[in-house]
Design a protein around this nucleic acid. Structure first.
Lengths: 229, 229
DNA sequence: AAGGTGTCAATTGTTGACAGATTACTCATC
DNA sequence: GATGAGTAATCTGTCAACAATTGACACCTT
């Protein structure tokens, strides 16, 4: 919907923001890589002015880092910083979930249930590793966040945090059991929402995301441990 | 500390960001007021380029709103949107408080206690209305947020949210008893921190901020109710 | 007189060029 | 062969001029 607003007037800066975000998230420009304004501007077919505006906006989101008089790099966060992002997401999406419990329409709840069960989720879950971080998983979270009816919260979670996390997502092998567990946690959350139990919904969502975070943390600990142990 | 980094190389865009933020928060430019780039640029003694970059950054923070090809105005949020901001602050500062309980040094805890009791807080509280939103109150929150040791969280709460809320703070008469209650809630929070009880610290901070939010909401409801009732 | 149409001033969007700073390189010196 | 000053090249920071869009006013049509 925000995109629709941009489509109305695709200023070069807006388009540059979109394109650049995509380049970063898709990994075409790697974390830590330096960005040269003139070069990138030529690649995008625009001049440096609008590009600089786009860069400044991405700086605000933490995707780019500028060193004065030297240049801008794509952010290259440490594992700890990524974990910190997940921690922030935990409380914000917990809040969204609590609000959603009070505000989702019956129709939307029904749709949420469909998302959870239709979306070939069962196959994914049974096959073992598919569900976690699948479109089905993402859609479930999206619906709940939107259901909070809190524009600022939606903007923050969907616009900023998700993009950043999508980028920084740790490409680690998730534990085999995680997919099934995640799916079951989703069911518990859905049930709390259907009971209109905001407190429980918030708590369950926070626990759900905490598990995801710990799963990552664990994978990193293993990968980071000395291989000659 | 972020300012220190800017002082190193105060680019015109950085300075414009600072000055413009100040102009908005001090109320020199009022909510809803239109900003003309050329005029403001001349007032700040710079050209439109750096100013536009600063504006784009403030757009990201939600302090300015741009209508494509028409202009930018200072945001003019509804009461509901302000309440939403407070709600977000609740969970984020709750998180900060939980982390602080685990991470504050004994020295910092001592300092926090001093802030609470020294800062002529007693006089403020006894006099009735002084404490709430006083420097002492703010300092207490600042110390805890910084104590979370979470750069991103600190940046969000202190850099973005506080400035926005400082600006949009509802100039409403707070209930007489609120100051004393707020002070006592601070004491409870401090005690939880000293016990290193993160769970309780988070819960208490959230309740504390929730009370503040409800106090505002109440004041608005009264002010907003039809006077001919 | 009401409604539509064309024109014009004002403002945003964009560009290319200039100035200042930083980095990398060269060359002389130890 | 290593080190350091000096210099050149490159890139960021900034500006002023140009293009495109908007909104308002006057004018014409019905």
């Amino acid at each position: 919907m925000e995109v629709a607003a941009l489509e109305k007037s695709p200023s070069l800066s807006d388009r540059a923001l979109e394109r650049l975000t995509e380049l970063i998230i898709r990994g075409d420009i790697k974390p830590g890589a330096r960005i040269q304004e003139a070069v990138l501007a030529r690649q995008l077919g625009i001049s440096r002015g609008p590009l600089r505006e786009a860069i400044r906006r991405l700086e605000g989101r933490g995707l780019l880092v500028r060193i004065p008089n030297v240049g801008v790099h794509v952010a290259n966060p440490t594992v700890d910083e990524i974990i910190d992002l997940y921690t922030i997401r935990e409380v914000l999406e917990g809040l969204a979930c609590r609000l959603a419990a009070e505000r989702l329409t019956d129709k939307e709840l029904k749709r949420l249930r469909d998302v959870l069960f239709d979306h070939s989720a069962h196959e994914d879950v049974k096959s073992g590793t598919g569900y976690y971080q699948s479109p089905g998983d993402q859609d479930f979270h999206f619906q709940i966040i939107k259901g909070s009816r809190q524009a600022r919260l939606i903007e923050t979670l969907l616009g900023d945090l998700y993009q950043v996390l999508r980028f920084f997502r740790y490409r680690s092998s998730i534990k085999p059991g995680r997919a099934k567990a995640a799916f079951e946690e989703h069911i518990s959350i859905l049930e709390a929402l259907e009971r209109r139990d905001g407190e429980a919904a918030e708590r369950l969502m926070r626990e759900h995301l905490q598990h995801a975070r710990l799963s990552i943390q664990e994978a990193v600990d293993i990968a980071g441990s000395p291989p000659d142990a």
